[in-house]
Structure formats: structure tokens, C-alpha cells
Design a binder for these strands. Structure first.
Lengths: 161, 161
DNA sequence: TCTGGCGGTGATACACTGTAACAAACCCGC
DNA sequence: GCGGGTTTGTTACAGTGTATCACCGCCAGA
């Protein structure tokens, strides 16, 4: 089990994220288009989960509107490539903090106070889940695990206002 | 760890569910109104997750329309009382298969083929999750764990068509 | 009895989220 | 240049959820 270390730096270091995405697309023979780049950059600019419409609005400038449907398409692409995650309980999107092993379970920690979303992973949880599913005769294809609560920073802030 | 036994009977035994709900409301001094009763019954009639609009349509008869907003209000009430669950990945609702210990984690097993939703629980998963959250300095208030895949019945059906 | 409050419901409107369908632009190999 | 796939723009629409206000029924208290 491990928690992802150095997370904050990761999330705010958008340039690194973009470089990684570009390399990944080149490697896979896919197009890292300007729109996809812009959407990824917009998502990576914040550690809060952002809605597709927020992103569309942020990317729009007078004279050059980006329609939500375009954002959705870019997000679909970025999710397929494992570059962003969707937070089902919020209908919102966050950058993937780091390269996950394919199929590795991710736990999203969503702070109800500051809105930041952290990622964690746990071999214990994953193993327990596998055993539970097997016992139930259930073959999983995809699982989501999202926890809402208070992050350490916000709890500390609440104690010493 | 245990998987909920006798689940099918539980889910289809709507009358029992209604009696339980009524008793629970009386006990808590809350109103188990006709609308709430109808909504719970509609949810309990199927082991598939149903959308609020589906429920509204099902409850509507010529001359007596039930608006989605009314269904949402009833569902909010029923969720607060722990009688129904919301499936975040589907924007849909299912009856609670049994009385959970308050705060106990539930794992939803969603079959992508037949759409049925089963419930499971696992002390392993829960313990692992607790440890992971503590390590991350995160205080949880609510967590959702939903797994999509193929249930045993559908996998068997696929093998012998 | 009257009255005021309160919870529940009905009804309308609206905001937010996501997708379908089609046309235009672009890119790339032939 | 041409043909075919991919990407994007645009419009329209479906699905999901909430805000607001009015009305009703009930019940406690004057």
C-alpha cells in the first residue's frame, strides 16, 4: 500500500503534465491537438474537480467560443489515455496525478471544504475488493471508489482559524 | 466479511420493504406519506437501478401526473432514512437490500449486461480503506464504492446461450 | 374557534450535464 | 491532387437536478 507522494507539486506542475501527455501521444501514434492540449491544461491548472462547462467557459475568449461538446470529446480522449479522471459523484474532472498501472484501482479523496481531490491507492483495499467480488461471483470491468470528507489541511485550518 | 445472503428474495419482497419503512418512520416520528410509499414501492419493484424520471413516469397515470421534482423529494427523504441508495455512476436509485449498520460501507455490484445491482460488504475493504485514509490524513464523511462488471448469472447465460 | 406555523405536495421554470447528427476542416499516405 | 480517416464546429436535443412560489392539511396555542 502506498499513498502517492509529492502530489501537490505534481498537480500544479501543468507544463510537466503537458510534456508527458505529448510524449505519450507520440508514443501511441495519437494526435495531441491544440484543443486537447488546452483542455488538459485547463484541467491541470487546479487541483479541484472542474465541470466540463466550466472548462468550456474558461477556454472561451471573445470571438472564439469553445463549445461544451468539444470539451467532452477532448475529455473522453484524455480519459481513454489515462490523463484525466472523472469524479462520478461530482460530474467533474481532475488531472491524473501520475501514471497508474493500467487497471490499478485509484481512490479519490474529495475534500468537501476546499474541493481539492487527492488520489490514493491501497493494495489492501484492492485485494479485499477482489476477494469480495470473487466470492460474489462477479467479474469486474471497472470500479470507482470516491471518498468525501475533510483533508488534513482543511482540518488543521479549522482548528486554528 | 460477508456477502448479503438471500438477496433476490429481499429485493423482490416489496411488501416487506414497505412494512419495514413504515415501522421505521413511525419509530422516528416521520411521515410515511402515500407519495413516499409509492416511490419506495416503485424503486423496490425492480433490482435494476431506476432513474428519477423513470419512476415519475411509472407513477403517473392519465389524469394524475407525478412530477420528477416530487420524486426527487421523496427519494431524498428515503435516502436520508437509509431506505434507498443512489448509484452515482448511473444517476439512478435502488432499494436498500437490508438494514445496514449506520456508516457501514456498502459495495454496489452493477451488472453491465442485465443492469441488476447487488450489494456486498467487506470488512477487509473497509479496514484497508480506513487505514489508507488515516495515512493520508483524510477524515471521511461518506464514501461510495461501485463496481461495474458481469454478474454470475449473466456470465453463465453467456457461456450457454 | 380561530389562527399561525410547519411540513408536504403541485406546478412552473430553469440550470446543469451529456449526446446525436451532420457538415466542414484537417491531415496523411498514395 | 485525391480519397479516406480523424478532428472540430455547430445545432439541436435528451437527461438530470434544483429554485421558487403557491396551496393544502394538520396541529398547537391563544
Amino acid at each position: 500500500m502506498h499513498r502517492h507522494e509529492g502530489h501537490d507539486a505534481c498537480r500544479s506542475d501543468a507544463p510537466d503534465m503537458l510534456a508527458r501527455a505529448e510524449a505519450l501521444c507520440r508514443e501511441r501514434g495519437l494526435q495531441f491537438t491544440p484543443l486537447r492540449r488546452d483542455v488538459l491544461e485547463a484541467v491541470a491548472e487546479s487541483d479541484k474537480a472542474q465541470g466540463a462547462y466550466d472548462i468550456a467557459e474558461r477556454l472561451s475568449v471573445p470571438g472564439k467560443r469553445v463549445a461544451p461538446v468539444s470539451v467532452y470529446r477532448a475529455l473522453d480522449f484524455l480519459m481513454e489515455q489515462g490523463l484525466v479522471h472523472r469524479i462520478a459523484s461530482r460530474n467533474a474532472f481532475i488531472p491524473c496525478a501520475h501514471g497508474h498501472a493500467p487497471g490499478e484501482g485509484v481512490i479519490f479523496l474529495i475534500c468537501r471544504s476546499c474541493g481539492a481531490v487527492d488520489e490514493a491507492s491501497s493494495a489492501d483495499v484492492e485485494g479485499g475488493l477482489e476477494r469480495t467480488l470473487e466470492r460474489a461471483g462477479f467479474t469486474p470491468t471497472h470500479s470507482i471508489l470516491e471518498v468525501e470528507g475533510d483533508c488534513g489541511a482543511c482540518r488543521k485550518r479549522a482548528r486554528t482559524p
